[in-house]
């Protein structure tokens, strides 16, 4: 009996060790590690570029990419916990005060689209109507020409760059705050997932995330398209940043160069963003 239990223990131990070893066999040799986190707007770009980079430029690197929001990315890179922070808004003065040696590099441009469920009959709203809706002054779709149904607002968390731009370009021009009833989602993906399923919902979303599962409405007759963003007819435009602390190390520099290369910029365009000039 005792012998059996010891054998069982040994087997469990061996299995764990074996799994670890097998795992390590599959792993590629060390060539440096890069940790990137931050804006979920930039996330698809960094993810795809990381994959291409590991595939084509330097197969021996391991690049870990995660979201968290612009605030998180700046926070983490400032504290030295990651190598590159991603942000979809400009650095705030307070952040530059705290970490004066942050170095942003522009990698693309994006806009913020106002989105509703595809079945929603509304196609166009003025900037002021949008601000009133998000402030909770207008709470029913019938007040802006839609069906008689409550407007279900969705917003991003306060650290979000998308929220920062939206507040700056839309809410603050009318001196309004986002309503307390709006549900907070912590990534562009979550916002899109909810709006795609809830008929009465309304939200703002990075233009790069807009696809056929939801409808981007035009603002004062101007559609949220890349052309209108570039000509600055569409009222919301912003720059996407990769941020390093001080001068980036070789690997980080090489990755940023890759994102800025023709191949990287092609990814930026394919994903629905605008490349940098």
């Amino acid at each position: 009996m005792q012998r059996n239990t010891i054998i069982a223990m040994v087997i469990v131990a061996i299995v764990i060790v074996a799994i670890s070893l097998i795992a390590l066999q599959f792993a590629r040799p060390v060539g440096g590690e890069l940790k990137i986190a931050g804006s979920t707007t930039v996330l698809p770009i960094t993810q795809e570029c990381a994959r291409l980079y590991m595939e084509k430029v330097c197969p021996c690197t391991r690049i870990s990419v995660s979201g968290g929001g612009s605030g998180t990315g700046i926070q983490l890179v400032g504290d030295g916990l990651i190598d590159i922070g991603a942000a979809s808004r400009d650095l705030k003065p307070s952040e530059l005060d705290q970490w004066p040696d942050l170095q942003p590099v522009a990698i693309g441009k994006d806009s913020v689209a106002i989105i509703v469920h595809p079945s929603n009959p509304i196609d166009d709203l003025t900037l002021e109507q949008i601000a009133q809706i998000f402030a909770g002054d207008i709470t029913n779709w019938s007040n802006v020409g839609g069906e008689d149904a409550p407007i279900n607002l969705i917003t991003r968390e306060e650290g979000s760059g998308t929220r920062g731009i939206f507040e700056e370009k839309v809410m603050e021009s009318f001196g309004k705050e986002i309503a307390g009833e709006a549900l907070v989602k912590t990534s562009n993906g979550e916002v899109r997932a909810i709006v795609a399923t809830d008929d009465n919902s309304m939200a703002y979303l990075s233009l790069g995330y807009v696809d056929g599962t939801l409808k981007a409405i035009s603002i004062g007759g101007i559609e949220a398209t890349i052309e209108n963003v570039l000509s600055e007819d569409y009222p919301i435009i912003r720059t996407l940043w990769l941020i390093t602390k001080g001068t980036p190390n070789t690997l980080a520099q090489s990755f940023i160069d890759f994102v800025l290369s023709d191949e990287g910029q092609q990814v930026v365009e394919e994903l629905g963003y605008t490349k940098v000039e």
Partner: peptide
């Protein structure tokens, strides 16, 4: 998880609880 939570008046209200507030905000807090 509403933007600014309130004391719920109906079981169909969206609410925040202690744990969800932490998970939502730990990331970007300075």
């Amino acid at each position: 998880n509403p933007n600014i939570p309130w004391i719920p008046t109906s079981i169909l209200d969206s609410v925040r609880v202690l744990t969800s507030t932490i998970v939502m905000e730990y990331g970007y807090v300075a």
